[in-house]
Amino acid sequence: MRVEERPGIGGRRRISWFPYLSLFLAVLWVVAFTLYPLLSALWYSLNTYVLGRGIVGFVGLGNYREVLASQEFWHSLGVSLLYALLAAPLETALGFGLAWLVHLRPPGYRAFQAIFLAPLFAMDVAVGYLGVTLFSQQGGLLDHILRRLGLEISWLSSTWGGLAGGLILDIWLWTSFCFLVSLAGLSTLNEEMYEAALLETKSSWTVAFRIALPVIWPVLSLAFLIRFLEALKTFGLVYALTSGGPGTSTLLLSPLVYLTTVRFFNFGHGSAMGFLFLVLASVFIALFFRQLRRVVEA
């Protein structure tokens, strides 16, 4: 069951055009469409931009210095990190659990599958607006239910309430993504192996965790990683729910960059924030990726 990197199928090195062309086309597309925007943003990050007058001065790393020194940036980054650290594992675990159960094809599994996929197609801002009415303390459904259970939270008028509300909605929205990816991963498994394993261990838990999980671990950990990255970039959901308030306490990084760049046309700062984030996150996933792969090899 070990996943090995083998050069070419069958162990023979073949220089064939097909893989090179395939990869090349994909890379070409991405580069063609992102090169100009990224270079443009990079150039902006090295200058001061003022609406109406355009670029007014070259400041080199000045924007980067200011962003690194700004409390707002670090706060947004920290909140985004916290948010992602809570959301991604929960969603991945729940997604896998649901996918596993559905994968067992219990009665009605098709209906479950269709329903569980539905949130994937809900727009984040729409869910945020819905959340405002769900968590409103003046007649919101969730607030009402939870209050009956004794839990009174200032959902949209406190920092922790806002983050909690956002997380609840995030989990609702994105577990379906992890569910789908897990399902895709599980679909490649060979079922005969289950029968064989069951004969040996007689425990479905063992089959799930000792056999299925390690095989789809790469896909699953990838889903986690992707979900983590996306959660760091969460924008519409929380922004529509809390507008970043109270103050800027629930302002995640993406909305901060959005306001800076698009609302205030401060391209210099906004781009610098983007690139700083890019560097930080890239380092993180590079390390994480390596750790992940190590687990698999073990």
């Binding site: 609406l51 008028s157 109270p246 103050g247 800027t248 306001l259 609302r263 205030f264």
Partner: peptide, 23 residues
Amino acid sequence: IPGAAEYWRELDVQVSNVLAGNK
């Protein structure tokens, strides 16, 4: 003045902080 929205935004954020009792 140019950037009025930006100036207002800073004020908005801090007023919100005061109303929340955080500052």
